[in-house]
Design a protein around this nucleic acid. Structure first.
Lengths: 202, 202, 202, 202
DNA sequence: TATGAATGAGTTTTCATTCAT
DNA sequence: AATGAATGAAAACTCATTCAT
């Protein structure tokens, strides 16, 4: 590994450290309540240092969101691929589960990505592609279902929007209202997914 | 109307003006991004004046949320009562529609109440009752359905949580992503509700 | 009593109420920490009302100080007169005691009058006369002592300044440091006065 | 001097500048009347800068008082040590003089330390040790005097409290009432101290 | 590359005070 | 005489950000 390569790697490591810390803090206390100073303190660098890696707080958020969308896409994509050979019913279910579980396992990211409405800021438009890619998985599943005449409704767009709505609903509520007296997760989520499928299937 | 009555009314009018403006701005830019000064400017009073009506920014939020929850409860309750005599299917659907339409007609409130996770602050616990009351409508509908053996699932809590999740899903997405290429509202919402019902019915 | 007399009396009563409350609060929390609103609340009037009786906060302080100086003068004067016939030694001691006891019994006033250096404000110069009158008692005692060749030092001004310094010393410390581990008051004050007298007597 | 040493020194210089200015202003106008902004203006920095050196206004006061108590202790201690070999009479007098002269030479500090009753705030308890140390000098002198059977009174605590009261009396009055028609300082202070000594000596 | 120093703009909030009634 | 409504001025403090080194 050349010196410049090493340097690049070091740089990436620090960048990642910053992004991870920021993600954690943003989601824990909310974007507004986390100051650059607090991020810096946590990683034991000076606040100024962060500016050597990110133009400003907004860019940090941008990078972080992009990363989040990538992870999210990857989760759904993996679920789909891992069940490529299974029957469609099963595949669908596993992708649904992947969606919800991503949210619960990455509350930080899910909040920032889908619940805080943060990227309506003009400055963050760049993330849209990544987001679209993730949504496209749901779209393609709807398309695939249609080929099998699986859904009651043959409009792919409509089906995928319904699915998204339903998946987002339970995921975001479970994240927001952690102290609510929810039915145990496994039971709730299992039944919820079942309900979605029945509601859509022919 | 006596003088003191008129005065009281004037006071209420200003209070309402403040609450409305705050609601709008909070929902538009987020609670943290809206300063007392900005609210004051919009209503063309001095910042100090707001403090003559509300102890502090937090209390303003508190009052506002309480108001929102009341409106919300009222919307659902009206829908239920107006369809008391209808068959259960119809009644359910109308309450669902009332939920979603409340959100779309009162985006500001819906955001503040259900999407910004703002009232996890201890200081706002007083609102919880109003919120619980609203949720209890869904609960009682689930109970009513059970009496008729309407739902596939006889656990009222489970049913109402599934319903809430699904209603919240589409409502919050439509609010958050207004620029997304949604299927026309009437079509989308109609099909969405249909899908929910099928998914739950025996 | 005529109507206008009654009105005047009422007015005086309220004025006094304000002054008393202000005195108490000023001394308790410090002039700066007491807002007009707090005074008003305590007497259960609106803040505006105070302005019907006093031009502003400063004038309130002014009146209050004037009142304090009067009380103070009266205390010393009474002690002197009550002991007119006693031997000079005794008379002196009783006036000393009156000084210290006034301070301890009226910590509020004593602080405002002699410890907060408040009336160096130009606006309060009017009080000076009252203060001077009080000090003149010490002066005249020094003069009286000299006639009897009582003091080691025949300069009246010098003697009275020494006395004032000594009396003020213990009084202000006892007020300021109430939690200090003082010798019991009676013992301390008795010995203190003894010490002063011995130090001055021929 | 290394670079880091120089930096440290620079930092200390600014800190000192802030402390000095604050001391002057606090004593001149009172702690409450001096805003961070005013201090900043005087040293020609931005208000924010002060917060880079002191956590908040209270800490600034705290540091300042601690410094004052140290100076005060040092003054008395020096006077005592410088006169270790002298007879007790002389030593006592010189320490008395040191007390009074410290007050007159450091009016700002003396006011803040002993006249403004500022450190009864819980937040400032840390200063108490320094204050106690200063008072302990008077105590030890009283003890020393007792060994020689110097004082009329053998209770050390009592003697030291009397002394403190008397020293504080003249010091604080001279500071507070600078426009009063005092006997010339040297005369007044000389006689005052003489009077104290006579009053205490056997 | 990393950072100490500095700051302008902004925050919530409090207060003395005025004015019309 | 009493007061509700309104405000300008100021307070302490925080933050994202820049700059020079």
């Amino acid at each position: 590994m050349s010196i410049s390569e090493r340097k690049n790697r070091d740089k990436e490591i620090i960048k990642e450290k910053i992004v991870n810390t920021a993600t954690e803090l943003f989601s824990l206390y909310g974007y507004e309540h986390v100051s650059m100073r607090k991020i810096a303190e946590k990683i034991e660098y000076s606040p100024t240092t962060i500016y050597n890696y990110f133009k400003n707080k907004n860019e940090l958020l941008f990078v972080l969101l992009k990363h989040g969308y990538k992870l999210f896409y990857h989760s759904l994509d993996t679920a789909r691929k891992d069940n490529e050979k299974e029957n469609f019913d099963r595949k669908l279910k596993e992708v649904f589960r992947a969606y919800i579980e991503f949210g619960l396992a990455n509350k930080d990211y899910y909040k920032l990505m889908f619940m805080m409405n943060i990227d309506s800021d003009d400055s963050l438009m760049g993330c849209e592609n990544e987001k679209a890619k993730a949504f496209s998985i749901l779209m393609s599943l709807a398309g695939e279902g249609n080929k099998h005449h699986y859904f009651i409704n043959s409009n792919e767009m409509l089906v995928s929007q319904i699915i998204w709505g339903q998946l987002h609903g339970i995921t975001s509520l479970l994240i927001s209202y952690q102290n609510f007296s929810w039915i145990p997760n496994e039971v709730l989520i299992g039944n919820y997914m079942e309900s979605i499928l029945i509601g859509l299937k022919k």
